[in-house]
Simulated assay, not measured.
Amino acid sequence: MGDGALSDWERSSTARVIAPVQPRKLAKVPFVELADGRLQGVVSSGSDIGRVYVSSVKAGTYAFACSTNNNRPCGGARGSYCNHIRALINEAVLQYGARRVARYLRVELADGDASGPAIAVAMSNTRPSQGDSAAAAPVFSRFLRHLAYLELAPTTAPLPEMQWFPPTRAVA
Rank of each mutant, 00 (worst) to 15 (best):
F31I: 03
R16V: 10
I119H: 08
W164Q: 01
A63E: 14
A77F: 05
R78Y: 02
L150R: 14
Q22D: 13
A35V: 00
I89C: 05
A77H: 07
P154K: 01
Y53R: 02
A59P: 00
A148V: 08
R78Q: 13
R72H: 12
S129K: 15
Q130N: 02
H84C: 06
S55G: 10
H84M: 06
W9I: 12
G2L: 06
R106W: 08
V171Y: 10
D8T: 14
A77T: 11
S80K: 05
S13E: 06
N71V: 04
V21Y: 15
L6F: 13
P158A: 03
A114P: 13
Y96D: 05
Q130T: 08
S47C: 09
I119G: 10
C66E: 00
I49D: 15
S124C: 07
R86S: 01
R86W: 00
F140G: 02
L34H: 11
P166N: 03
A87Q: 09
A92W: 01
D8S: 14
T68K: 07
A170S: 11
M123D: 01
S141F: 10
A15T: 14
I49G: 15
A27W: 05
V17S: 09
E108M: 10
S67E: 15
G2R: 09
K28E: 09
A110Y: 10
L94N: 13
V17I: 14
L26P: 00
P23N: 05
A98Q: 03
D36L: 07
A120D: 02
M162V: 07
V52S: 11
A15K: 10
L105N: 02
A19G: 05
D113P: 08
Q22S: 13
A137Q: 13
I85S: 06
A87R: 04
G4T: 09
G112K: 07
H84T: 06
R127E: 08
R100A: 15
F64K: 01
A157C: 04
G60K: 12
K58L: 11
A98F: 03
A114K: 08
Y149G: 05
S67L: 12
P166G: 02
T155H: 14
F140S: 01
R24E: 11
V93I: 11
R11H: 08
V52A: 13
N125C: 11
D8A: 15
A170L: 08
S55D: 08
C66I: 01
G60Q: 07
S115D: 09
Y62P: 00
N71M: 13
P128Q: 10
N70W: 09
G76C: 06
R51F: 04
R11W: 04
A148Q: 14
P166H: 03
S55N: 09
S129T: 10
P154Q: 01
L159K: 08
T156C: 04
N71Q: 14
W9P: 00
V32D: 04
Y104K: 03
P128A: 11
S55Y: 06
L152G: 01
Q40W: 02
